[in-house]
Nucleic acid binder design. Structure first.
Lengths: 336, 336
DNA sequence: TTTGAATCTGACAACGTTATCTGGATCGCA
DNA sequence: TGCGATCCAGATAACGTTGTCAGATTCAAA
């Protein structure tokens, strides 16, 4: 493994000063065409690659964006990552994935990440997007960040989100429109800002129909398949069984499905089931899951785009970007 | 956003030369305890963080490992990424995720990635782990790499793999042990090195039992849900329908399941279905999928570990690491 | 020619760190 | 008290790039 050629090697070969090489490579003016060609030929011949560390030392830019998340087994995260990734690639940026344990010392973890990695910006996914310690640490270190789906203090820093309340309202409405009146709801993880909003939307739609759900029909979940299964089991063994169950995310909805099947109930014959997020699993399961499509990929692409603009010194057009959700009626819900 | 404190700021505050600060921070000897304490106090007070670019300029280390993959919607990749990520975190390394289009100019894409990012090493996931252009580009640029599950030229560069042939053999055996004799097989993507090996294992087990599968019972798939569904449809509408179907990955197995249900067949009553990989979806679907557990997470963790060792200048204990697979009998297969 | 402006090119400093070398202090021992 | 040996700390030079400034060349107009 020989030494990487430097700008000086190229200069020697092209018989110019190394500064001229730098000029050519950065497309600066005031270089004769003949010289430019000679330099480019030399650079190509030596297979020269600029040293990113040296460049970063001057400008302070790393072209690297951080993607902070908790919960490794969250299919939401995969989609989010892809969105950010593709947007980064488009602009020649790169993405460093950084797991963070939101139960631990979030501020310390972020400090550690930024100590060994100079990032041009950071994308925060839930639940970190609502973690005060994370925001404080980033502010202190002066690192730009965009939050995905935050629910507290949306004006604190740039963010991208959907209206969770409105989305849950719409999904509940569509269940009501199918004739369901006894609807169970599986709440999301209490640490996630989206959870209370989705519950609020559900409640609002019920109330608007003159229904006030029994406390038994609201079950606390934790966004996991298992918690969904447990919730489903409890809901579906109630004396006054709901005819539809709306889970605050897809994973829990799949859990509810599994519980229903374990109890010998057919879907959607005996019970309709709806989820939230529209992860890939929603389409691949059977029956396919009626759910709220949250444009996670687009949201993260937008977030990456915002950070790239900021890094380029451009001002942000809007500090908070609201994207549209979409109700995806599939096979897991039916008219009663 | 104030300027980050430099080593010189710390030196000024601690009233020593900046070199002494460097010594303290790097744990070098020959510093009086009193001076050391003063320096550490000053560094803490200023909340000093070393500049990674400057450090990288000298030593040439970035503490950044690249993770190259194709196919964004591949749940295999998610798991692989997590394995690499956790191992990196453990040693203070970071992971940059880099999608590569293996249909395009792979060499060029890799050159581009390494032009703007100095990586201490690269992990190659299938199918890139078998891409000659990728290997050539990395060799030319002198970048260390570890290949995950390669199937050609295992001695070319360090790699981590399982014995796909043996695993497919074992799964086929377990189907035979359940009494199945007419077994359909859905082949993997032709570009993936694992595909022919899994087919070979399947064939070997059948042959050993004195069975030679009908050509109609071998269907080409592409590792996607849709291709699995299509294959399932073809297999299950044959006059002499197989009683079991073994798909070369989980996604296709789920597709076969969907096809079976569309045809009104019960699983595993009418047909047993087995997959390969043991992705999360395998457990969350219904019925849960019998499959081959490939320790993808462990494999990538091992790969990251190898690169970290190499970056630290340690020699590799073994250039090729073979990990064990495991047959996971679940609810989608039954005795005939 | 001479002048002035425009264009091109190079010398040098700077970025923040680590590595090398050198000088001064301290200490043990004769 | 003298004198190596050892320990400590600072000066200075890298690393590979970009930014600043000044010098050199070209060219057109006077």
């Amino acid at each position: 493994m020989t030494r990487q050629p430097t700008i000086k090697d190229v200069a020697t070969k092209a018989e110019v000063s190394f500064k001229t090489v730098s000029r050519v490579l950065n497309g600066e003016p005031h270089v004769r065409e003949e010289v430019r060609d000679r330099v480019l030929a030399a650079a190509a011949a030596l297979n020269y690659r600029p040293n990113i560390a040296a460049r970063g030392l001057i400008g302070g830019q790393s072209r690297l964006i951080g993607f902070l998340y908790d919960n490794p087994n969250y299919s939401y995260v995969t989609e989010a990552e892809i969105g950010a990734l593709l947007r980064c690639k488009q602009s020649g940026y790169h993405l460093a994935i950084e797991p963070v344990d939101s139960q631990g010392d979030v501020g310390g973890q972020i400090e550690q990440i930024l100590a060994s990695l100079r990032l041009d910006g950071v994308i925060l996914t839930p639940p970190i997007s609502d973690d005060p310690a994370a925001l404080a640490a980033l502010d202190r270190l002066g690192v730009r960040h965009v939050r995905i789906a935050p629910h507290a203090d949306r004006d604190l820093s740039p963010c991208v989100f959907i209206d969770d309340d409105e989305a849950a309202f719409a999904m509940t409405r569509s269940l009501l429109d199918l004739g369901h009146r006894t609807i169970g709801f599986v709440l999301g993880h209490p640490d996630h800002g989206a959870s209370p909003q989705r519950l609020a939307g559900f409640r609002r739609a019920m109330r608007e129909q003159g229904l006030s759900p029994d406390a038994n029909h609201l079950i606390q979940g934790y966004f996991t398949f298992e918690s969904g299964m447990e919730a489903g089991l409890r809901l579906l063994t109630l004396p006054h069984r709901p005819t539809a169950i709306f889970a605050a995310n897809d994973k829990m909805a799949l859990g509810v499905m599994a519980a229903a099947r374990d109890l010998g109930l057919t879907i959607p014959g005996d019970v309709s089931i709806a989820g939230f997020d529209d992860t890939h699993a929603a389409q691949m399961g059977w029956p396919s899951l009626t759910t709220v499509h949250q444009p996670v990929e687009d949201m993260c692409a937008a977030a990456a785009g915002m950070l790239i603009s900021l890094a380029a010194g451009e001002p942000l057009r809007e500090a908070a970007r609201k994207l549209d959700f979409q109700i995806m009626p599939r096979a897991s819900t039916a008219r009663i």
